[in-house]
């Protein structure tokens, strides 16, 4: 997607997440944060021109749904645009340090995904805090990257 669309998604997901209790609603609270963080990673990758910024939606690595003028969505093979998760697909380039930190933070967060969402492990306060901190780091790093652009243009 376009960077602006990723930013809108982040805003929407954070609004939804704010209505959820991190403990009682952990599954959806976590999922909203994971999706928001993935949008941040994608926006940063597009900004660094490491992946293609395009109005197309990731189906699986290398396959994208592309909107046509008549409103239809058509699946196409394409070079990397949006990733589904960090590592899906692997970006064949050295990441700038700030984007590597976003990737690392997302991996710390997603480390808890299957155990706590799919395998029944309770989400402890420490896990909640770790996930919240990881997302905060992703969003802070993205904001900093985008703000540097605005300073450069000023």
């Amino acid at each position: 997607m376009l960077i602006a669309a990723h930013l809108q998604k982040i805003d929407r997901l954070l609004q939804t997440r704010s209505r959820l209790d991190p403990s009682a609603d952990f599954e959806l609270w976590f999922w909203a944060g994971m999706n928001a963080g993935t949008h941040a990673f994608n926006a940063a990758l597009h900004h660094a021109r490491l992946t293609r910024e395009r109005g197309a939606f990731a189906m699986q690595p290398g396959v994208y749904l592309v909107p046509r003028a008549d409103g239809a969505l058509v699946a196409e093979l394409d070079e990397p645009g949006d990733v589904l998760h960090v590592g899906r697909p692997v970006i064949e380039a050295v990441l700038p340090p700030d984007i590597q930190r976003i990737a690392d933070a997302m991996e710390r967060m997603e480390h808890h995904r299957d155990p706590c969402i799919r395998e029944g492990r309770p989400a402890t306060p420490a896990i909640v805090a770790a996930c919240a901190e990881a997302l905060d780091e992703c969003l802070h790093l993205l904001q900093h990257r985008l703000a540097e652009d605005r300073h450069a243009c000023a």
């Binding site: 998604k9 929407r12 997901l13 609004q15 939804t16 209505r19 959820l20 009682a24 609603d25 599954e27 959806l28 609270w29 999922w31 909203a32 999706n35 969402i117 029944g120």
Partner: peptide
């Protein structure tokens, strides 16, 4: 877990939270 997720879904609204509702339905 499914019942927990469905309880959380009731805090979401179709008009504003469609992404998470679809994800929740999947989970």
């Amino acid at each position: 877990v499914a019942e927990r997720i469905e309880r959380s879904m009731r805090k979401c609204r179709e008009a504003h939270d469609h992404e998470l509702l679809i994800e929740a339905a999947m989970l």
